[in-house]
């Protein structure tokens, strides 16, 4: 039985506390966490605005987490994704997986990220002094899903 923890929030989260929560199971031998942050590639990024689809977002993330729990033997799955206005360097999201062995934890975390990138209803907009631009989806992200089918 996998413990699913799905959070969609404007607030920052405590990465250490989330990792500790995943470590709690007595037969948990491996915990993998991935954190995504707001990066300023070209310089001049003032803010990243993240829009989402309330209701569908929670459903999509829960569905993705359940799929991971079906495919791998996991004691815990955590998916946290923020929305709203985020500064450069801010944490955007995390996935965490806990399992008896590392292979399942790594693979499940990778699966969660690949699906979350192009199947969870979030949209990013970068705001600079010169205006704002919606972040385009990448063909590589869509193609990444193929390896799980």
């Amino acid at each position: 039985m996998t413990g699913l923890r799905i959070i969609v929030t404007e607030d920052d989260f405590d990465l250490g506390a989330e990792a500790a929560r995943l470590e709690a199971g007595p037969d948990t031998g491996a915990v993998v966490t991935f954190t995504g942050r707001v990066r300023d590639v070209g310089g001049g990024l003032q803010q990243m605005q993240i829009e989402h689809y309330p209701g569908m977002t929670e459903r999509a993330l829960t569905d993705i987490a359940k799929q991971a729990a079906t495919r791998w033997s996991l004691s815990g799955v955590t998916v946290i994704h923020r929305f709203g206005h985020l500064a450069p360097g801010a944490r955007i999201m995390m996935v965490g997986t806990a399992s008896r062995h590392r292979a399942a934890a790594f693979e499940a975390a990778s699966f969660l990220m690949d699906y979350l990138k192009s199947r969870a209803p979030f949209w990013k907009k970068e705001v600079t002094a010169n205006g704002s631009t919606w972040v385009a989806s990448r063909d590589e992200d869509e193609a990444a899903l193929d390896r799980w089918n």
Partner: peptide, 10 residues
Amino acid sequence: VAFFPPMTGG
């Protein structure tokens, strides 16, 4: 019914 561009989560 919802319409939106390709999603860019993560």
